[in-house]
Simulated scan of single mutants.
Amino acid sequence: MSGEAESVPKKAYLYFANLDGIRAIAALMVVLSHIQLHKKLQGIQHQDLIDFKNFGKIGVTIFFTLSGFLITYLLLEEKKRFKKVSFKAFYIRRILRIWPLYFLLILVGFFVYPAEGSMHALWLSLFLMPNVAFCMKLLPNIFDPIWSIGVEEQFYIFHPHIFRQKKVQNILYTLTGILIVLVALNLTVRYYQYQSQFLLNLDLFLYFTRFDDMMIGAIVALLYFNTKNNCFTFGFQSAFNLLLNKYFQMALAAAFIAFICLFVHKEIGQGDLIISAFSALMMVYLCEPGTTNAFFGNKAVAYCGKISYGIYLLHKYPLMLMLYIVRNYIPPASTFWQTIILYLGTIVLVVLLASVSYFGFERYFLRMKSRFQKITSNKLAATNAA
């Protein structure tokens, strides 16, 4: 024994290869949903082979669940490797990742194009409450996807502080307690919603404040972390370990797809919680080291996941451009070709615009963000820092 304190590494390595694929699917589901919605609003009536109506709700739910899952796992990993969570570094990382494109879109949307929206909507958006403006129908629809960014930012205000607790088991109790309260509140308000306008508005607000989905992701991430670190034992440990079995995951995926098919055609009360639970449980297997997935690991899918923030926030601009082109330059009688060109053109333009955003704007801030990262996906950087 040298008598010196054990050195703490500056960075640690952790990489979940398949999560970019999940981001890509979630973002593209939102895009497809909005293409179908706005196509119908513009009177392009060709029947789609697949009903994408509720794809957007599914995609957003997956995004929220993934956010809760990944943030929680990273915070637990930081707490284990570095003995504490650096809250200052956490908030700087979130600011550098989210704020630049978010505030750029606010600037463009309110003052350049479409240069619409009330002052109330502007102030709510500037103070990270665009979900409130969205519920009040104050946001112009071309940039209304910002509502979910406000939800995530609000979640980040309190979530990291749960990890001040020393015992991982106590963190689990806290997360579970918050989830129970949120679900009970949602169910109660939904049951009594028609008794007053206030309850109707509250029900709408609660739906667009999806902390319950993020809590589900957080709880599953904590239980998954526990399988690696044995922080505590719990009654369902053996059942949870089934998630690491590929055949069980195949059955889970089949059940998930069946539920999505049902949800797409008929909305189900609190169905987002079921979607959140399915997606979080599948993330466990997809995060396993060495797990390869022909679809999620595909280079094109992974690339779309990498630029998914831009795809999600910016997609309505290319969509509106393609709607203008299709309405004015494709004969109305050719509704089939209108639909094909609209879908393909929008997706291509969305990927191009998101790529420009990522490499021409976001990446500058991402490089700054890397200085404050405790957990890196770059193995070489972690090795050099140690």
Rank of each mutant, 00 (worst) to 15 (best):
V60P: 08
L32H: 06
V60Y: 04
L41R: 15
F63D: 03
G43S: 01
A26Q: 00
K57M: 14
Q47N: 15
V30S: 01
I58R: 04
L41K: 13
L41W: 12
D48K: 04
H38T: 11
T65L: 10
S67H: 02
F63E: 03
F64R: 07
I58T: 10
I50L: 10
K53W: 14
T61G: 07
L28Y: 07
I58M: 10
Q36W: 00
S33C: 10
F63N: 02
H46Q: 15
I62F: 10
G43D: 08
D48C: 10
T65Y: 08
L66Q: 02
S33W: 07
L66R: 01
H46T: 15
Q45P: 11
T65S: 03
I62Y: 05
T61Q: 12
G21C: 00
Q42L: 12
V31L: 10
D20R: 04
Q36M: 08
I44F: 13
I58K: 00
I35L: 04
I50F: 13
F55M: 03
G56I: 02
H46M: 15
V30L: 09
L41S: 13
M29W: 01
V30F: 05
T61E: 05
H34S: 04
I62D: 03
T61Y: 09
L66F: 07
S33Y: 00
G59C: 12
S67E: 05
H34C: 01
N54S: 15
I22T: 05
I50W: 02
D51V: 12
Q36P: 11
